[in-house]
Amino acid sequence: MNSRKISVQTRDLTKRFGRFTAVNRVSLQVYEGEIFGFLGANGAGKTTLIRMLTGLLKPSEGEGFVAGYDIWRQAEAIKRHIGYMSQRFSLYEDLTAEENLTFYGGIYGLNRRDIENRKRELFAHVGLQPFANQMTRDLPLGFKQRLALACALLHDPPIVFLDEPTSGVDPRARRNFWNLIYQTAQLGKTVFVTTHFMDEAEYCHRVGIMHMGKIIALGAPGRLKQKYRKSTMQDVFIELHRLSEEQA
């Protein structure tokens, strides 16, 4: 495993908002082609960590490298190599699905032919062809999230950050979306995905579990279940939660 190339690496990465520490000395490594799940309850600090890695927020302390670039000094270079799907749907509701992709294609500097090609490929990839000309606001949430994924993959980045891509949709749509995540990883991309659904941890190659800004467990789901002698990740999480309460 350690011979593989590293996509994302942090060392003691910390973010404070005033006196409140949202992300507390997080150290982790994510390998190329891996589906890395980042788990934690609401408010654990997942979004804040992703925002530091994607250049949306300046860290308070610590180190971070994404695709080999330093998050302190090379945030703009990082942006060319990542796709990002915000936890809150953030495409234009008053453009059609297709117009959204065309727009972002233009923003990423793709030429007109590439934009057309990528749109066709990605609509097929996420299964949105029938809805291409629908106004985005009229799409069901599950489809909006697929559109957001297509948008994050538009410029063919080696790493994608997906922040709670499955929150708010029904279990079937969640399953479908996880299939898409698998297909995306099969294209050789690193997928860094956060969720607060513990069952989704089972789908990841490796997971980091976050609690109040700190990483309290890190590893493959199988190993974690073995270590804490539980049969599901849900139980592992409850156990971890209990242990950290005891410590406090």
Binding site: G55, K79, Y84, S86, S90, L91
Partner: peptide, 9 residues
Amino acid sequence: TLEQLIVTP
């Protein structure tokens, strides 16, 4: 949507 724009180059 600004957030999405900020993560582009």
